[in-house]
Amino acid sequence: MFRLTRLTDYAVVVLGQMSSQKEQVVTAPQIAEETGLPLPTVAKILGLLSRQGLITSLRGAGGGYISHQDAASITVADIIQSIEGPIALTACVEGAVDNCSVETMCPMRGNWNKVNQVVANALKTVTLADMIDFQDSFIIDKQKSDASSVELT
């Protein structure tokens, strides 16, 4: 099963929170409190995201982290690569450093690159804005709600 780590999932949450405060300096404790995530996890995520340039780290008094990018300009692929590294479904892809022992005889050698490229391209089409746009998901049709409620006396 192709599965992302919990850290990547949390990175989407952290970036989603930061996108609601774009251009504002926020601290790791502040984000941890707002998201309910553990502070060490948030600190680790912020470090990884800043190293990859998705956010900016500010040192000194009044320091913290700031997001200059719109949520629509950050793709899920960007987030995954910042946390997990290159997107790959198998170890035997172009540029892999830990090739398997039967690589030279493998009939699939090179063919996984096609699949990896399709997956990477798909992840590049989904943005952080798409991931955090849940506002319509929780709208309840008032007429249906009123019609189905029963008043007990």
Results as ranks from 00 to 15, higher is better:
I45G: 03
I45K: 04
Q24T: 11
V25R: 05
E33C: 15
L49N: 00
R59A: 13
Q21W: 09
I31L: 15
R3N: 12
T27W: 01
S19T: 07
T56V: 08
L7E: 11
P29A: 14
Q17L: 08
L15N: 13
L37M: 12
F2P: 14
V12C: 03
E34V: 02
K22E: 11
R51W: 05
V25L: 15
Q24M: 11
R3A: 15
A28K: 04
V42P: 00
M18E: 04
L37W: 09
Q17E: 13
L49H: 01
Q52I: 03
T8E: 08
A32M: 07
L58D: 03
E34M: 08
A43Y: 03
T5P: 05
R6Y: 05
I55C: 06
T5W: 09
L58N: 12
Q52H: 12
V25K: 11
S57C: 02
L15A: 09
I55V: 15
G47P: 04
V26K: 15
T35V: 04
S50V: 03
A61E: 15
D9L: 10
L37R: 05
F2H: 03
Q17W: 12
L7Y: 09
R59Y: 11
Q21M: 12
T27E: 01
A32Q: 08
S19F: 10
G62H: 04
A43K: 10
T41D: 01
A43E: 06
L46G: 06
T41N: 02
P40S: 02
L54E: 05
L15F: 13
P29M: 12
G60L: 03
T56D: 11
R3E: 15
G36S: 07
T41Y: 00
A32H: 08
